[in-house]
Nucleic acid binder design. Sequence first.
RNA 1: UGGGGUGUCGUCAAGCGGUAAGACACAGGUCUUUGGAACCUGGACUCGGAGGUUCGAAUCCUCCCACCCCAGCCA
Length: 563
Amino acid sequence: MAQTNLSPPFDFIREMIEEHLRTNRFQGRVMTRFPPEPNGYLHIGHAKSVCLNFGIAAQYGGTCNLRMDDTDPSGENQEYVDSIIQDVKWLGFEWKDRLFYASDYYEQLYQYAVQLIKKGKAYVCSLNAAEIRDYRGSLTEPGRESPYRNRSVEENLNLFERMRAGEFKEGSHVLRAKIDMASPNITMRDPIMYRIRYEPHYRTANQWCIYPMYDFAHCLSDSIERITHSICTLEFENNRPLYDWFLDELNVEYHPQQIEFARLNLGYTVLSKRRLIELVEDKCVRGWDDPRMPTLAGMRRRGYPPDAIRNFCERISVAKNDSLIDVALLEHCLRENLNEKAQRVMAVLHPLRLVIDNYPEGQTEEWDSPYHPQNPEMGSRKVPFSRTLYIEQEDFLENPPKKFYRLAPGREVRLRYGYFIKCVNVIKDPKTGQVAELHCTYDPETRSGFAPNGRKVDATIHWVSADHSIPAEVRLYDRLFRVANPLEGKSDFKEYLNEKSLETIRSCRVEPSLAHASPGSQFQFERVGYFCVDPDSSDKVLVFNRILTLRDSWSKASGKEKI
RNA sequence: UGGGGUGUCGUCAAGCGGUAAGACACAGGUCUUUGGAACCUGGACUCGGAGGUUCGAAUCCUCCCACCCCAGCCA
């Protein structure tokens, strides 16, 4: 794959890691983890984190664990676990036997909580949710201490044990860390460690009715796994003092370093689980793997190669600035990748019938055409040619503007891999006045690259033989939203959805070599774009997804919309 | 009007006191049987703003401004 940046990535995280290596902070170890919560599908924002965590581990000779951060039974399920596993694998990373679940640590976490209670650093609070919120204070006012804050260790132990035993109603008690209700950092105002939930957990079923909160579970899970660098996104910066507090108070052997980086924002889409769920549930898209979705499942179905995504994640680099990445960069990585490895074939999306008057009726030729003109090692296939062809409707204009140099009345162009043809007649539909069929003549001396006496032609157009080509359905995708940042402005981001993000064309014609292309395989339809076979394809219909268009300086120059 | 972060080209982003890397985008050009690809060229007299320190500041100091995050028994 084309790789422009050959030097290994270097950023503030790696800089910190190298400092730790120099000062022997972790005995030379580098161990990371990717900790998704299995309550939704992974998207390209997660890919950034996956690439960072697995990439760093590989770079420094360490390991990266895959850990399901499943501490909230509502919404989490095995289907999501399976999809996460599939997606991370697809991206190209492996974790061997290091697939862990926070839910596997429930007993250990419980014991840690007991330890904290014994130390007088945690207490059972019996305020209700509204009261807790009220006691917490606000951004500008300090909180007030809970009336239950000074229960004895014995009482706390007893109550916590009974919470676990299921003696109390949901919401009646929580376990809280005893820190500082006046802290300017709200995270430190006696944060909740455990809450009672009678919802069954997808892995532990009804074994537990108390579940640990993120702040308590995460740092300890990291410690249990001997993680050295716990990389997370910026919004957890406020939580770092708490991350450190638990580990310090519990005096654990392994105390990882939490490091925060800016999450990915990509133009013309949204990258938040909550909003993606909304798109799926409101049927704005066909599902999690709709090719317009920024989910890894969607991108896989769309035909985005995983190594292009990895390259993209490396190129956007890692920093702490809130940023909105230009989709053009993603598209560039995709084109760079696909340009190198996609086989070239011919397909006509909007067919226009073209008859070559001086080509013998019934005659057929088969031309051996390379799958990749720049790379002959990719082989070739036979492309049949005959008297009646289909060309792209937009490759002909009856009254061409100055800079249009494709086919027009009296004009000559080359057929890709074939002859020069000249348009001699235009037949229109008498009712609509639309161009219905073109008549041309061909020059037998001009086959495949030959041109007598240096005769030149301005354009080369693609085509398929009418009788030999096969029908196909093509799905054209455009950006999901009309604006770069759908979260800015209107209260409902869905108001910015691009109504034309999917266009299905059922009357396409593709060259016969595509007849048995397997789902997922990627091609360049010459002059049109990159496409892949959709799993919806069957013996009856071939369905292609447009991965993306080719760069198109003509449509840019003519100010015309992409086909 | 608390606390935590961030502000360098249109978009990302290096820079860590010695006189503004790189990528994408954009513009122009070469080449070409894909108006594709490849290749060449061009662009921040300036680093959120204002002061200050220094021979020298994007980098240090002071003040100001803007934006993001935190008041879930979510993560």
